[in-house]
Design a protein around this nucleic acid. Structure first.
Lengths: 182, 182
DNA sequence: GCATGCATGTAAGGAGTTACATGATTCA
DNA sequence: TGAATCATGTAACTCCTTACATGCATGC
């Protein structure tokens, strides 16, 4: 009875407070999304599944007249979360279409390579902006780990932007030519 | 008629030479695997598909008495490859279970957090070794772009290892305790 | 009254991995 | 002779996203 990795995000998101499926989705989108996403199509069926397994339990908690179910960890659920935390991570996957294009750029124009790197720089600059926005709130949390992970994201983005700038400079040195307007 | 991203890896891998499905898989495993993987279950059906679309063409090229089909780009296939190279990349996805565990580490023991970071450091140190092994061969290529991408991988791994070491040091400062033997 | 947000879900489909099956060849 | 490698493929399965559907509540 292997739990899916999405199951563990749910258990993790319930570690300190009870939450509805909707709120779990909000929490994921506001925090782990950059390195671990989850959609409603995964979350709601998993909540049912985890309830059936006795790892979480849901109670009706309507807001006004609007129906709402919040879930919390059972002791078994907390044990499973802890067991998972103590185990080595299995998944590290990167899918980077920009690097793929850069890799094959010999088949295109010099502008293609420069364009791929510039796109990548903008993508990460944009991400950096969004991470910096949430930084004060995350830093103010009692829990130090989310801030550690956020710092990782910020420093990673900074490193990536610097790498892109350097490569863009190198590419501009040999053979000029842009592809698109910046 | 949107092409899958796997289709473009295949087109890219055929940009300079003709290759069999088996050789494409070898090439992917020896180069783009870290940021763009592909399995036989994708490659062989895609080769059929791309043939039907007229973007590649296969010829029988037995090696000894062993059956073998090599594929090369048609003009239409090369045009599609160039079109794709000039377009902005759409996909950048990261799935990092180690970061997820670190994020939720407040629900575990202090050793769990340190363990997740140590695992991550070892994972990237190992990857770095493998990248350094192929570095001379890639550098010797006529095409500069694969080496650019390899350098990205090497410098990224180095950055990641340094980040892990720093965090491990910080974590060791507050509350000692290891989780597993290194 | 209408748009937006809260809240829960499902159906369909795409993408990708794993495991399996087959068979030839090469090398120790 | 047997193991490893070359070579091609398929079936089943998991995972995940997207699009859709429903309906209440809130605020403009």
């Amino acid at each position: 009875m292997e739990l899916s990795s999405t199951a563990h995000v749910i258990l993790g998101m319930l570690r300190n407070e009870e939450r509805s499926g909707y709120e779990i989705k909000q929490a994921v989108d506001g925090s782990t999304r950059f390195f671990w996403a989850a959609s409603y199509g995964q979350i709601y069926p998993q909540l049912k599944q985890l309830s059936k397994l006795g790892l979480i339990e849901g109670t009706e908690a309507p807001r006004g007249g609007r129906k709402r179910t919040v879930y919390r960890l059972t002791p078994a659920g907390r044990a499973e979360l802890r067991r998972w935390l103590a185990d080595p991570a299995e998944t590290f996957e990167l899918r980077d279409e920009g690097l793929l294009k850069l890799f094959f750029s010999g088949a295109g124009t010099p502008g293609d390579a420069a364009g791929s790197v510039a796109d990548k720089r903008r993508y990460h600059a944009d991400k950096l902006d969004r991470l910096r926005e949430i930084e004060p709130a995350v830093k103010a949390l009692g829990d130090p780990y989310p801030y550690m992970v956020l710092s990782h994201g910020i420093e990673y983005s900074e490193w990536m932007i610097a790498w892109c700038e350097r490569v863009e400079h190198d590419l501009a040195g040999a053979g000029r030519g842009g592809r698109r307007a910046a």
